[in-house]
Simulated scan of single mutants.
Amino acid sequence: MSLPKPMMRGLLAKRLRFHLPIAFSLALFAAAAFKFTVTEPRKKAYAEFYKTYDSTKEFNAMREAGIFESVRPSGE
């Protein structure tokens, strides 16, 4: 009793017809999941932060703390 010879001709095309749609589906699902679980909440957080952010106030607070070497605090 001998084993049948494996079919080698067209094997890649046969395997690709099965695996390619699965790979594209999984990639699409992963991209959508990343978009809605990571990037959208991050965009919302940035938008919320910059609604109330005052850069002048932040600059003055850092200047008063002495962070900048080239800018003297306003009290001096």
Rank of each mutant, 00 (worst) to 15 (best):
Met1Lys: 02
Met1Thr: 13
Met1Asn: 11
Met1Trp: 02
Ser2Asp: 11
Lys5Ile: 07
Lys5Asn: 11
Lys5Ala: 14
Pro6His: 03
Pro6Leu: 01
Pro6Cys: 03
Met7Phe: 12
Met7Pro: 00
Met8His: 03
Met8Thr: 08
Arg9Asp: 13
Arg9Phe: 04
Gly10Lys: 03
Leu12Gly: 10
Leu12Tyr: 05
Leu12Thr: 05
Leu12Ile: 14
Ala13Arg: 06
Ala13Trp: 01
Ala13Tyr: 00
Lys14Asp: 04
Lys14Cys: 05
Lys14Phe: 04
Lys14Glu: 00
Lys14Asn: 07
Arg15Trp: 00
Arg15Gln: 01
Arg17Pro: 12
Phe18Met: 02
Phe18Val: 09
Phe18Thr: 00
Phe18Pro: 03
His19Asp: 08
His19Ser: 06
His19Gln: 07
Leu20Ala: 05
Leu20Thr: 07
Leu20Lys: 06
Leu20Pro: 10
Leu20Gly: 05
Leu20Trp: 03
Leu20His: 07
Pro21Cys: 02
Pro21Leu: 02
Ile22Asn: 04
Ile22Arg: 06
Ala23Trp: 06
Ala23Pro: 14
Ala23Leu: 06
Phe24Ala: 01
Phe24His: 02
Ser25Pro: 00
Leu26Ala: 06
Leu26Tyr: 08
Ala27Tyr: 01
Leu28Met: 09
Phe29Asn: 04
Phe29Lys: 11
Phe29Ile: 03
Ala30Met: 13
Ala30Gly: 04
Ala30Pro: 00
Ala31Tyr: 00
Ala31Asp: 04
Ala31Phe: 05
Phe36Ser: 11
Thr37Asp: 01
Thr37Phe: 00
Thr37Met: 06
Thr39Lys: 02
Glu40Gln: 13
Glu40His: 07
Glu40Pro: 05
Glu40Lys: 13
Pro41Ala: 13
Pro41Ile: 10
Arg42Asp: 10
Arg42Ile: 09
Arg42Cys: 08
Arg42Thr: 06
Arg42Gly: 03
Arg42Tyr: 08
Lys43Tyr: 08
Lys43Asn: 04
Lys44Trp: 04
Ala45Thr: 11
Tyr46His: 11
Ala47Pro: 10
Glu48Ala: 15
Phe49Leu: 15
Phe49Ala: 14
Tyr50Asp: 12
Thr52Gln: 14
Thr52Tyr: 05
Tyr53Met: 15
Tyr53Asn: 15
Tyr53Leu: 15
Asp54Ser: 10
Asp54Arg: 12
Thr56Gly: 14
Thr56Tyr: 14
Thr56Lys: 12
Thr56Val: 13
Thr56Ala: 09
Thr56Pro: 15
Thr56Arg: 12
Lys57Asp: 12
Phe59Lys: 00
Phe59Gln: 02
Phe59His: 09
Phe59Thr: 02
Asn60Glu: 11
Ala61Trp: 06
Ala61Glu: 13
Met62Cys: 09
Arg63Gln: 04
Arg63Ala: 04
Arg63Ile: 02
Glu64Tyr: 00
Glu64Ile: 02
Glu64Ala: 01
Ala65Val: 08
Gly66Asn: 01
Gly66Arg: 01
Gly66Thr: 05
Ile67Asp: 04
Ile67Asn: 07
Ile67Leu: 08
Glu69Arg: 10
Glu69Thr: 13
Ser70His: 07
Arg72Tyr: 05
Arg72Val: 03
Pro73His: 08
Pro73Val: 09
Pro73Asn: 11
Ser74Gln: 07
Ser74Asn: 07
Glu76Tyr: 14
Glu76Asp: 14
